[in-house]
């Protein structure tokens, strides 16, 4: 019996190791590719590790793909989107969590519905709408689309955090004679801080990573976002310049990877507790 249990355990370790290789190895491969010279990349017998860790690919990729400009655009769009999403979803999330009105049903319905509809149905009218008001080929137009696109999920996340704050706390504050706004600012807001951070990170990453809407709306090269520029680079030079392509991708992935490293503990625990509550 004992031996069978240990054998089972050993198999479990083998299985989990295989999963980890499958999930993590592609990133390792991208990483090492970014440091290799063109000669190494074209060698008939490619090695996993570069002979020397040189940064030429990074310098070349930044210049050729004009990454700084694209990163600036992506950063601007993502930051503004995040700010707007947080500011307008905060009161709405509070209303959703605290007042059980028809609104709640409507909002829930929309949040679910908005997941089912293919983007193609919404992007053509948006494209036709934004053009005449001067937002067609602009970062402002992209912000509008991203705000609306990330709102349902942000609302849903945030209202969950509001709902987890006991109403008793607010009522206690009200009993002590504090005005409503004071109760909200000094009791609810501090407790909501982790939820606000998590929601903003999701909005930020969503906007930073998004590709489809940018592809349709942004036509000016100077206004392209990072994913757009990278996708173009694949077709233009990426066929031959594998090292530069890897370097550019790695640089563009850093913010997302960093954010996830920062919040992963909270993310896992938050999702785990949230889902259990149903």
């Amino acid at each position: 019996m004992r031996r069978r249990v240990t054998l089972g355990r050993a198999l479990q370790y083998v299985a989990i190791a295989l999963f980890m290789v499958f999930l993590a190895f592609p990133l390792v491969f991208l990483f090492t590719t970014a440091f290799k010279t063109q000669a190494e990349l074209q060698s008939p017998d490619p090695q996993l590790l570069p002979a020397q860790w040189n940064l030429d690919n990074f310098a070349a990729a930044i210049e050729r793909a004009n990454l700084v400009q694209a990163a600036g655009n992506s950063l601007l769009v993502a930051v503004v989107t995040t700010l707007i999403v947080v500011v307008i979803s905060l009161p709405a999330a509070y209303a959703l969590a605290r007042f059980r009105t028809r609104l709640r049903k409507l909002a829930t319905g929309w949040i679910l519905l908005s997941q089912v509809f293919p983007f193609i149905l919404i992007i053509i009218p948006l494209y036709l709408m934004l053009q005449p008001i001067g937002l067609g080929n602009s970062l402002a137009g992209l912000v509008v689309v991203y705000v609306v696109w990330s709102l349902p999920f942000a609302l849903w996340m945030l209202q969950g955090y509001v709902a987890s704050i006991p109403v008793d706390l607010e009522e206690a504050g009200a009993m002590d004679g504090a005005p409503k706004w004071r109760v909200l600012i000094s009791i609810v807001l501090p407790l909501l801080a982790p939820g606000l951070v998590a929601t903003s990170l999701f909005a930020f990453i969503g906007a930073w990573n998004e590709f489809f809407f940018a592809l349709v709306l942004i036509k000016d090269e100077a206004l392209q976002t990072l994913p757009q520029r990278l996708a173009l680079f694949v077709g233009a030079e990426g066929q031959v310049q594998l090292g530069q392509l890897a370097a550019a991708s790695l640089l563009a992935a850093i913010p997302s990877l960093l954010f996830f490293a920062l919040i992963q503990r909270r993310l896992t625990s938050g999702l785990l507790s949230g889902a259990v509550k149903g």
Binding site: L27, N209, P227, L230, S249, A253
Partner: peptide, 10 residues
């Protein structure tokens, strides 16, 4: 943690 475009490139 990775954008779809970069996943595809990788």
């Amino acid at each position: 943690a990775m954008p779809p475009v970069i996943i595809a490139i990788m």
